[in-house]
Computed example of a mutant assay.
Amino acid sequence: MGNLAEEIALLAYDDSGALRLGRPVFEYGLAGGVLLDLALAGRIDVVDNRVTVLDPTPTDHPVLDHALAAIAADKDRKPKDWVTRLSKGLPDRVLSSLVDAGVLRREQDKVLLLFPRTRYPAPDGGEPAEETEARQRLARAITSEDPVDPRTAALASLVAALRFERKVFKDLPHAQVKARLKTITEGDWAGKAVRRAVDEIHAVLTATVVIPAITTTS
């Protein structure tokens, strides 16, 4: 099981290695995943609308530790600020981590022999096992009324905030998916500190990512 940013990246790229989420939606989604992972790990909290470090101990994951060190060094910032700041350069760090782990490979070519393009397919050209595992966890959460574990619930909350559910759950009725995602996002699956972080980050992603995306495509 990878971290939430890695799982969002795997869900966002199709089997050909092409990105299916627009920018900056993708970048902000990764940043939201990093913040939620740090909250789940007990490293950060949101107090008085400011992200606060509770425990500076490294997590042993370079992407998360880069963010944790940045937050520890600049304490008086809102969740919205950190979503924006952490998003810069984050796709390359997350994707490089997946490439280094052998989950994806990096392919570079040119469109029409002119425009550089980078793709991130799995080494065997199919769906990575890590992505399959994340999809299966999400599908079980959507199709069952059983309690959802915090990591899966956090991933579901990110999918909901990014309005990415039609692609992630393309084989399930959309109304059912929307209703269940709302229930999961608002559910009692996290402790008080994590709950605050989830609510703040979900609100930030919805306002920062979804509204501009709708305006751009309308």
Results as ranks from 00 to 15, higher is better:
D76L: 10
K78T: 15
K75N: 05
L64W: 00
V47N: 01
H61L: 01
D65G: 03
T52C: 04
V63Y: 00
N49S: 13
K78C: 13
V47E: 08
D45W: 02
R43C: 06
R43A: 10
V63H: 01
A72V: 08
T52S: 09
D76I: 10
T52Q: 15
A72W: 04
D65P: 06
A41H: 08
V53K: 09
I71N: 11
A73E: 15
A41S: 14
L38T: 09
V51Q: 06
T52F: 11
L64Y: 00
V83M: 10
A70Y: 08
R50W: 05
R43Q: 11
R43W: 05
G42E: 13
P56Y: 10
H61P: 00
D81S: 12
P56M: 10
L40M: 10
H61E: 09
V46E: 04
D81P: 01
I71A: 05
I71V: 13
L68P: 11
A67C: 04
A70W: 12
H61C: 00
A41E: 07
T59I: 01
K78M: 13
K80A: 15
L64S: 04
V63D: 00
D55L: 10
V46Y: 08
A67T: 04
V63F: 00
R77D: 04
P62K: 04
D60Y: 12
D45M: 03
V47C: 02
L68Q: 13
H66K: 13
A67H: 04
